[in-house]
Amino acid sequence: MSDSKYTRETVLKVHAWVPDKLLSLTTTRDASYEFTAGQFARLGLPASHAPNQAPSIWRAYSMVTPPLQSDTLEFYSIVVPQGEFSPRLAGLQPGDALYVDRTAFGFLTLDRFPAGGDLWLLATGTGLSAYLSMLQDPATWASYDRIILVHGVRTVQELAYRERILQWVNSGLPEASELPRCAQLVYLPIPTREAFESMPMARLTHLIQDGRLESLAGCTLHAETSKVMLCGNPDMLTEARQILKTRGFAVGRRGNPGNLALENYW
């Protein structure tokens, strides 16, 4: 059952990164569905007591898939044990239905910035989703000199998509190799509660504050040459925004594109 506001998609695959906590879910994609890398979809399910009725419970999830090169949609989710939606999402199996609003939402997109310089993509937890979509868009690689992807999590087990990202670090995005100029990707996976490789066990905001993030990345966070995106829990966003403000970073306003963009992902 559907109407003009949403489509009925079919679950193709469910992958548990951390059982009962983190998962990725892949669905079919309506041929007319369009979005910009970094935007999010509204996913719908019917009420639990009326599984055969129209969807009435909706939640926002960023697309992991690229905007143009995929005929599927992929989403990355945390499971909130007492939540109304995510436990049911985690319980879906291939062949089950999931509803997708026909309109994509959100403004955490790269058209907010002028091209050039370094692009810093800072995420906590499932805030990584939007950046994965951007990194599968060849236009992203063509627009910046360096891309620094930072993923803050609690444990090593929560470093979802790490193998895929390391492939991009080592080989780049295949489609991007055809472009005249291709960005270098730096990947910093940072668990805060477990030792991992040579990474410090510290919150991203602390690493920004004391300069260690720049040392790890091998480049400087400079307001004249860097663009920064923040996606994750609201506390991180608030604190990081204040720290970056003292260094000349600001969200764009009318007539001024700015060098900072952020979106809560909680």
Rank of each mutant, 00 (worst) to 15 (best):
M1G: 14
S2Q: 14
D3S: 01
K5G: 13
Y6C: 11
Y6V: 09
T7N: 12
R8F: 10
E9W: 05
E9D: 11
E9R: 08
T10I: 12
V11H: 00
L12D: 11
P19V: 03
D20N: 13
D20P: 07
S24P: 07
R29K: 11
R29M: 01
E34F: 12
E34L: 15
F35T: 10
F35I: 10
F35R: 06
T36R: 15
F40C: 03
A41N: 13
S48Y: 10
Q53M: 11
Q53W: 09
A54Q: 13
I57S: 10
M63Q: 05
V64A: 05
V64P: 06
Q69H: 15
D71E: 14
S77T: 06
I78D: 10
I78C: 10
P81G: 08
G83T: 07
R88F: 11
A90P: 01
G95F: 05
A97C: 11
Y99A: 11
V100Y: 09
T103A: 12
A104L: 07
G106I: 04
F113T: 11
P114L: 08
A115N: 09
G116Y: 08
G116F: 07
L119D: 09
G125P: 04
G125T: 02
L128K: 02
S129I: 02
A130T: 00
L132H: 04
L132K: 02
S133A: 05
L135H: 01
Q136L: 04
P138M: 03
A139M: 04
W141C: 04
A142Y: 04
A142E: 11
S143K: 07
R146D: 04
L149G: 02
V153L: 09
V153R: 05
V156Q: 14
V156D: 14
Q157H: 15
R164F: 04
L166S: 10
V169P: 01
P174V: 02
C182K: 09
A183M: 06
L185I: 03
Y187A: 00
L188T: 10
T192S: 11
R193I: 15
A195H: 13
S198Y: 13
S198W: 12
S198E: 15
A202F: 05
A202Q: 14
H206V: 15
H206R: 14
I208M: 06
Q209E: 15
A223H: 06
K227I: 05
L230Y: 04
P234N: 10
M236L: 04
A240Q: 07
A240S: 11
I243P: 00
K245H: 13
R247I: 00
R247T: 09
R247A: 09
G248H: 06
F249D: 07
F249L: 06
A250F: 12
V251G: 03
G258T: 09
N259P: 11
Y265M: 00
